[in-house]
Design a binder for these strands. Structure first.
Lengths: 163, 163
DNA sequence: GGCCTATGAATGAATG
DNA sequence: CATTCATTCATAGGCC
């Protein structure tokens, strides 16, 4: 009998998988609640041989368990910030009001607030702000890029090409 | 004067255009190309400069951004790469020959090649390689997992009553 | 029509 | 802050 999620007898060693060097993010079971038009169930975590490539297959469950072992107090969902409108609205409001790279104390404060809506850790908040900041800036600079692009278009198609 | 492709004042960063030039190996300097004065050239003076400037896919990005504005998450077209056998064969050949995360110049080169077959942008090429690489890794991991876990034993022992 | 797979796109979680 | 990667999301298209 072999057991999923355990490393009995040294049969399986993560060191044998150089590409698994990165920490594995907890795998989230697909939400049972699906859009009204979607008939997809995806409700079970039961390993299925014919679904070995699916999201809730044996493999995923295995790595999920590994991660659960490796990391204490880990959350099981992809992101409480994304899954919960209240929490995401909260951080977005904070961001809108100027919070960009909160200090540890601020992070703990925010995390404590968001914990009312669900299980969450400080690192989730930290990553959220980091990524959000980066992507907002990307958007902003893309806009600037468009401006530049428009300038070039004006320059070449109007300023020089025309007249 | 606007200088497309240059980073005057630090306002333009290729990192904000992940589809223009993604993979920028930090350790391995790339071949130093002869710099020119053309604002459209993709010449490299130093690796860091290359990181900043990368390749230019101005119109591609321009249209991409327009499209982003027009409809977020537009999946109306299944795949520019897959809709055309020639283009998909091209990138698959490149992948088979070792291209994994192409440089900005490579992406632009590939995109320019594929444009002969149909409408395509640099970001499509970027996503294609990113996804292809990731899914190859995924497949490999799963296969190795099955082998390691003695999946074959399950298949053969169930029916034959192995003791 | 429902279900499944393939895949472009996006995001969380890191690492450099 | 830039970059990378594993995973997830969303959907087109095929199959029955």
């Amino acid at each position: 009998m072999w057991m999923v999620g355990y490393n009995e007898g040294g049969e399986f060693n993560m060191a044998d998988y150089p590409f698994c060097g990165r920490k594995l993010r907890p795998l989230m079971p697909r939400p049972v609640l699906v859009p009204t038009t979607s008939p997809n169930n995806t409700s079970t975590i039961t390993p299925s041989l014919n679904r070995i490539h699916g999201g809730n297959d044996l493999f995923s469950q295995y790595h999920h368990n590994l991660r659960q072992q490796a990391s204490v107090g880990d959350h099981s969902k992809r992101s409480e910030l994304n899954n919960n409108n209240n929490s995401s609205a909260t951080v977005e409001e904070l961001y809108r009001r100027g919070t960009r790279t909160p200090y540890a104390e601020q992070i703990q404060q925010i995390t404590a607030q968001l914990r009312k809506f669900g299980k969450i850790e400080g690192k989730n908040v930290f990553y959220w702000f980091q990524n959000h900041k980066a992507r907002e800036r990307q958007k902003r600079r893309r806009q600037m890029f468009l401006v530049k692009m428009g300038f070039w278009r004006v320059l070449f198609s109007v300023g020089f090409g025309e007249k």
